[in-house]
Simulated scan of single mutants.
Amino acid sequence: MAGPGEAQEKFMQLPLPQLDQLKNNIDQELEFFSSSITQLRIAQTKLQESCDSLSKLNKDTEGKEILVPLTSSLYVPGKLSDVNNVLIDVGTGYYVEKNVMDADKYFKRKIDFINTQVDKLTDILQEKVKLKQAIVGVMQMKIQAQMMAQQSTVAKT
């Protein structure tokens, strides 16, 4: 990607309406990337909660009453019959049975993957912010130049 100086030079060649449209496009991209980061953070939190729940499974909890989620808002009573194996939601309605240790590894691997994606999106977001700042700076310079030109033509008359 071009440096800030190079970008400003390229933006100087564009008329104000195009710069405004470009700024609006970047605003939309910033909103999209921010929303994506938020969604990834929510998924990361859910995975971390699942990982933390695994640590509560032990021989003492076997046979205890629990609430089993059928949907995000519907739970039914049940008994914990097997503390060594769990069902993991792997997406799109598919579940996989894993032992607790493998489930823990799975959740940690997914959390690490999400962290990597969040880092990538954060870098992109920062670049877009810099780009927007460059565009806004050029727009301000062009508006100032137009105002000065208008003032000089008014002063001549």
Score class of each variant (00 low, 15 high):
Asn58Met: 08
Asn58Thr: 05
Lys59Tyr: 08
Lys59Thr: 09
Lys59Phe: 07
Asp60Asn: 04
Asp60Leu: 08
Asp60Gly: 04
Thr61Ile: 02
Thr61Phe: 04
Thr61Ser: 05
Glu62Gln: 15
Glu62Thr: 14
Glu62Arg: 11
Glu62Ala: 09
Glu62Cys: 07
Glu62Tyr: 02
Gly63Glu: 03
Gly63Asp: 04
Lys64Ala: 06
Lys64Val: 04
Ile66Arg: 02
Ile66Phe: 10
Ile66Ala: 06
Ile66Pro: 00
Ile66Trp: 05
Leu67Lys: 06
Leu67Asp: 03
Val68Asp: 00
Val68Leu: 07
Val68Pro: 00
Pro69Lys: 11
Pro69Met: 03
Pro69Cys: 02
Pro69Asn: 08
Leu70Met: 07
Leu70Glu: 12
Leu70Gly: 00
Leu70Ile: 13
Leu70Asn: 05
Leu70Pro: 03
Leu70Gln: 12
Thr71Ala: 06
Thr71Leu: 10
Thr71Pro: 02
Thr71Ile: 07
Ser72Lys: 13
Ser72Gln: 10
Ser72His: 09
Ser72Ala: 09
Ser73Asn: 14
Leu74Gln: 09
Leu74Arg: 11
Leu74Thr: 09
Tyr75Thr: 15
Tyr75Val: 14
Tyr75Ser: 14
Tyr75Gly: 05
Tyr75Cys: 09
Tyr75Pro: 04
Val76Tyr: 03
Val76Gly: 05
Pro77Thr: 10
Pro77Asn: 07
Pro77Gly: 07
Gly78His: 14
Gly78Asp: 13
Lys79Thr: 13
Lys79Arg: 09
Lys79Ser: 08
Leu80Asp: 01
Leu80Arg: 06
Ser81Leu: 13
Ser81His: 12
Ser81Tyr: 11
Ser81Thr: 15
Ser81Val: 15
Ser81Ala: 12
Ser81Glu: 12
Asp82Val: 15
Asp82Tyr: 14
Asp82His: 11
Asp82Leu: 13
Val83Ile: 12
Asn84Ala: 02
Asn84Val: 06
Asn84Thr: 15
Asn84Phe: 06
Asn84Leu: 12
Asn84Ser: 08
Asn84Pro: 01
Asn84Tyr: 14
Asn85Leu: 09
Asn85Val: 04
Asn85Asp: 10
Asn85Ser: 08
Val86Asn: 00
Leu87Trp: 15
Leu87Lys: 13
Leu87Met: 10
Ile88Gly: 01
Ile88Ala: 02
Ile88His: 03
Ile88Thr: 08
Ile88Trp: 03
Asp89Lys: 07
Asp89Ile: 14
Asp89Ser: 10
Asp89His: 09
Asp89Leu: 09
Asp89Trp: 13
